[in-house]
Nucleic acid binder design. Structure first.
Lengths: 251, 251
DNA sequence: AGCCCATTGTCTGTATACAACCTGTCTTAG
DNA sequence: CTAAGACAGGTTGTATACAGACAATGGGCT
């Protein structure tokens, strides 16, 4: 965890700065609205101004920072509604991906790959009833979503979705851990997995409209998780980048 | 048109470089796939390497350039399918915007503003029957789409749509001029304008699903225009950035 | 004659120096 | 006591120097 400084000599300084800076922002080390000083980051990240500047520009495009009119960048703050819409955007684009995959047909190998992924998720959910460890589910879930997007086979859509998922709390599995302490956990995972199976079936059968609708609804599970996280600070802490979300009431 | 070089001393060098470089790419002055050399751009744009580099990064994020693995950037080439999907993405997101606007209600002033814009478009279409000058229509059309997006009042969605419309041939009115020589011109403008009116009505009546469907279909007019442009090189020349689109057959 | 290796030229990645700008504070005049 | 202006500190925007990497080319060896 603390070996980020000198490690990875192979990576370019720019990438190193980008990763480290994103980590800082997500961890909440910089306060929302606060200006991110280039020079401070120079001494904090151990690289010169040029890569820092590069990283700042890229993180702005990513949506984690926003440009200050007078120059420089500040940590962005997100309202509850903005998070909600970000999730809706992702769901809409994933819906589009599913529809395109259904309409022009997915490759046999991709379908098998996806089915295999779902079987593994089933295993994890079964085991989940004994010991709660969502990391595997989160990873497999992300993998399934990636397979689905690849099925659309449309680079521009992939790009847009990457961008939509760049906001940490908008990505496919960012809000899953929120439910880890919930008694509904198993219920929710079961429902989500059923949607996974349904959308895959719809794609196989070339039912584009259905595939799209399912993916949209699937993303709305994240809305529920968000709702829960906004109520309990304890659950909120499980979400990466939660420090960027403006709370409704300050306790 | 030729006063871009030394003018606008107030603008930052980075912005100047970005605008000039985008112009070069869209004009087709750089061949798709070709590497964009920083030093060559330095002497071509009259600014130093730092702003050039900045502009390159931003144009990559915009989608006009792509990173070369070994370093640097190249002009991106788009397949017919990629253009098609880019249009579909824009339509989908505009559909989402219309639905959100309908569901949570648009402000009275925004609705009036939009209606006024549509009246102006009506005027232009009427005049269009005499003299063909689409520039006004293009501008008003863009304005209406912007008003619509603003009605959603969702910064993340606005951002994503800006990004989706960054590709020149994917934006709302980029492909309109394609029809300027077509006998169907008046027909198409009439249909498009009717969709404008319908979507506005749907938003007023809080018919979210309908508003969304209309905007999606509305964007598909661009598909038809694209089809036409791909057949006639003469029409293709009217589209900015057409040089980036890979032709199916090389004549 | 063909292939491999070395060398050279050009490119990008990085660091840093300089200048213009904005901001906040302190002083001074009304 | 207030308000306006000037100054100082720090910030970013820009330019340029340097080093490492990649690619192309030419010569030598087989």
């Amino acid at each position: 965890m603390t070996m980020d400084k000198a490690s990875d000599r192979s990576l370019s300084q720019t990438v190193k700065a980008q990763l480290a800076l994103r980590e800082l922002v997500l961890r909440g080390a910089l306060n929302p609205g606060e200006r991110v000083s280039e020079l401070q980051m120079v001494e904090r990240l151990g690289v010169s101004r040029t890569p820092v500047r590069m990283a700042l520009v890229r993180l702005e495009e990513e949506g984690l920072l926003e440009a200050i009119p007078s120059g420089g960048f500040a940590v962005k703050a997100f309202s509850e509604k903005e998070v909600f819409v970000s999730i809706e955007i992702r769901g809409t684009l994933e819906g589009l991906a599913a529809r395109l995959a259904a309409e022009h047909g997915a490759s046999r190998s991709a379908l098998l790959n996806a089915a295999e992924c779902l079987d593994e998720i089933d295993d994890v959910i079964r085991r989940e009833m004994l010991e709660v460890d969502l990391s595997q589910y989160v990873e497999l879930n992300a993998r399934f979503h990636r397979i689905l997007i690849d099925m659309a086979d449309s680079p521009p859509l992939t790009r847009q979705l990457e961008r939509a998922s760049a906001l940490p709390f908008a990505s496919a599995s960012a809000l899953v851990p929120v439910q880890s302490r919930s008694p509904e956990l198993h219920h929710i995972l079961t429902v989500a997995q059923d949607q996974h199976r349904c959308v895959l079936t719809a794609i196989e059968r070339r039912e584009g409209s259905r595939a799209e609708a399912i993916m949209r609804e699937h993303a709305r599970i994240a809305h529920r998780n968000l709702e829960r996280a906004l109520s309990n600070q304890r659950d909120m802490d499980l979400v990466p980048g939660s420090a960027l979300i403006k709370r409704r009431i300050r306790a």
